[in-house]
């Protein structure tokens, strides 16, 4: 066990956790997979950690959005966009005044 932990900088268990969280580089992920394939002790640790992660995930809510809510939210997002564009679009009076303030001819 200690030999396995020392085989990888930072410890094998920590590396398995990072692997399962998807936080490892491709190179390190391949290393974990190779160790797990060759070492029964590593394979055991990997299975235990995977099971623990699955257990934890099962305790979290994972509600799927309904079609109705999804279309509501898509509509609402577009409404928000429209309102923001409207409130930030300069009025005709402002646009006219900015045109009138522009120097067209210089003498």
């Amino acid at each position: 066990m200690n030999e396995l932990e020392n085989q990888v900088p930072g410890g094998f268990s920590a590396m398995v956790n990072a692997y399962l969280d998807g936080n490892l580089s491709q190179e390190k992920s391949t290393l974990v997979e190779e160790i797990v394939a060759l070492n029964p002790e590593a394979s055991k640790i990997f299975k235990e950690r995977t099971a623990q992660k699955e257990e934890l995930k099962a305790l979290l809510p994972n509600i799927e959005i309904s079609k109705n809510s999804l279309s509501n939210l898509k509509r609402e997002v577009r409404e928000v966009n429209k309102d923001l564009v409207k409130t930030n679009r300069p009025s005709i009076a402002n646009r006219l005044s900015s045109i009138l303030n522009t120097t067209i001819f210089e003498f």
């Binding site: 809510p61 509600i63 799927e64 959005i65 999804l70 509501n72 898509k74 609402e76 997002v77 928000v80």
Partner: peptide
């Protein structure tokens, strides 16, 4: 939207509140 709505529901367990939170 789907992922953020589910996250909203994890914060406040109510469909309408989760929608409003996202918007």
């Amino acid at each position: 939207i789907p992922g953020l709505y589910s996250f909203g529901y994890a914060l406040i367990p109510d469909e309408l509140e989760a929608e409003q939170l996202f918007v």
